[in-house]
Computed example of a mutant assay.
Amino acid sequence: MITYKISMSCNDSDMFNYADKVISISAIDTKDDTCRLSLRTDSDALVASIRDIGLINPPILRQRQDLKYQIVCGFRRIKACQSLGWHEIRARVLLGDLPELDLLKLAILDNRSHRPLNVIEQARGIEKLSAHIPSRNRLEVLASVLGFPPNQKVFGKLSKLCRLPESIQAGVLDETITFEAAVDLHELSPEDALSFFDLFKGLKLSQNKQREVITLVQEIAIREDLQPGHVLQSKEIRTIMDQPELNQNEKGLKVRAYLKQRRFPMLAKAEEWFSKERKALKLNEHVHLTPPPYFEGGPYTIRMTFKSMKDFDERCKTLDAMAKNPALRRLLEPFK
């Protein structure tokens, strides 16, 4: 028998006793993900390493009452051995009746000993711990000891992330959807959240623009008494997404423009009117006229650039011509 010792905090430690055994892989319940933190268990590099060098770090298992073995640490290692056609594997089998909370602690610390946990692994770890620790304060203290972010705001966001479908969690890792945008989806139904995710897969949007799309769609859904997924399945959005001549950036611009027009129909008309009349002013690239935000009665802004007195005189002539142009009066009157 070997004693496996792992420190849980600065003040105490837990002792885990285990026996080295050779276990039939068929006796391992690979579908029991009680202690699994990672979404993906496949790794070509790990397969190659085990094939060439062997299994250096045996997985840790626990035998259940039904005599099947539960994986505590080493999901990827066992998956790699399976892909190599192994039928047996050397493992460390924990002895004694250990509570699930201790198994989770061991799984988290074992993962952290190999590499930093990614954001999804952190979220899954917090979610699994919270099932055993109802007190938020105790959970945050233990999570901090185990290496999770001590910031309460980040901690709360990680908890929300784990409630999303696994495909969206995977999308955070491959940057199809940003962390903040994914958190915004946590209160939606899985179907609606996946509708947003499917849209983002076909677009190239920054974090702020993804969040803008989520907000616009939710506001449209509330105003029109629809589900967000129904808004995203509109004919207009499908038409944009089905245009092969548009790249992802261009599709993103058109989708956002459509949503803004649908959400703020009067604002869209005002923007269209302003754009038309501004063109009639025949301003050049050195003079820019900007309306007040949302055309809500604030001041208009004129910005001009110049390098010399000659340039300055030219800009003044442009402004003088602008003041005499009837288009300026037409442009201002609708928004008095």
Results as ranks from 00 to 15, higher is better:
E88W: 10
G54D: 04
E175M: 08
F264M: 05
I53P: 00
L98P: 05
I120N: 03
E224P: 00
T239L: 08
K317H: 11
L281I: 06
D12L: 11
D320E: 10
K31T: 14
I177G: 01
K307H: 14
N325A: 03
S49T: 10
E187C: 01
H286L: 15
S195G: 12
L281N: 03
R64P: 00
I2R: 13
L188M: 12
S195I: 07
R223M: 07
S24M: 05
I53E: 05
L331C: 07
L46Q: 10
R51F: 10
S135P: 01
N137Q: 08
I6V: 15
E271S: 09
L185N: 04
P165A: 13
P292L: 12
D97M: 02
K251W: 07
L158M: 04
R163N: 13
T239R: 13
I89W: 09
D174H: 12
L39I: 10
Q63Y: 06
Q261K: 12
S275Q: 15
Q70V: 06
F306T: 05
D225A: 13
V141Y: 08
F75I: 00
A27Y: 07
P149W: 11
E219M: 03
A321V: 02
Y258G: 06
V217F: 03
S144M: 02
A143V: 06
R115W: 04
Y300W: 15
A181H: 01
G147Y: 04
E212C: 11
R330S: 12
F196G: 00
A170M: 05
L289C: 05
K276R: 09
E180S: 10
R76H: 03
T318D: 11
A48P: 00
D110L: 05
L253R: 10
A91N: 00
Y18M: 04
I71F: 05
R112Q: 11
T215Q: 07
T34S: 09
L61Q: 01
L185M: 10
N247C: 07
R330K: 08
D12T: 13
V141T: 14
T301C: 04
L104T: 05
C10A: 12
A48R: 13
C10K: 12
L283V: 02
K324A: 15
I177C: 06
Q243C: 03
Q169Y: 00
D29T: 00
S206T: 14
N17F: 14
F148T: 00
K317F: 05
K5M: 10
E272H: 14
S26P: 02
I50K: 06
R77T: 11
S189Y: 07
E121M: 11
F312E: 08
L267A: 06
V217K: 04
D242K: 11
D42C: 05
N11F: 15
N325M: 02
L109W: 07
N57S: 13
A143L: 01
E245Q: 13
